[in-house]
């Protein structure tokens, strides 16, 4: 079976560069799985769990923000922040949630009469909470 080249980079470092058979991406409009010969696509990401399936097993990463570029033989994920799932402890997760909440409060302050940014920030929180559900952590308020 044909493989595709998978790269995951964050602004600070390159997290992964492997040959994968299948990559599951949390796209803004819903999850999608990219395999070899996928149609060239660019999608933005929502906070979620990125799964990479390769010959050595499955790697999971928690990604927040950014986008993915899919071509027939490669997938490049440019995440604003990305962590291997093992590194996302309750502590890290709590601070991520707190950040999202702060952004929400801030949006409420700044855009009092515009629903757009506030809704976006609220969605960010719910996405983050959903991430917690996927990796077995709970958001405590």
């Amino acid at each position: 079976m044909a493989n595709l080249q998978f790269d995951l980079v964050s602004p600070e470092r390159r997290l992964a560069s492997v040959e994968a058979t299948e990559v599951q991406i949390p796209g803004a409009d819903g999850d999608m799985t990219a395999m070899a010969n996928h149609a060239p696509t660019i999608t933005t990401l929502r906070p979620g769990v990125l799964r990479v399936i390769h010959s050595g097993g499955t790697d999971e990463y928690v990604v927040v923000g950014g986008f993915a570029e899919i071509t027939a033989d490669s997938v490049s994920v440019l995440a604003e922040s990305a962590l291997p799932r093992d590194e996302v402890t309750q502590e890290v997760y709590d601070s991520m949630i707190a950040e999202a909440k702060a952004a929400h409060d801030n949006a409420k302050e700044v855009f009092k009469n515009e629903p757009g940014p506030v809704d976006d920030a609220a969605k960010l929180i719910s996405d983050m909470v959903a991430v917690g559900g996927h990796i077995g952590l709970t958001a405590n308020n």
Binding site: G27, A28, D29, M32, A39, P40, T41, I42, T43, T44, E69, T71
Partner: peptide
Amino acid sequence: STLYDYEP
């Protein structure tokens, strides 16, 4: 340049 599909 490759022609991409864009989502959203």
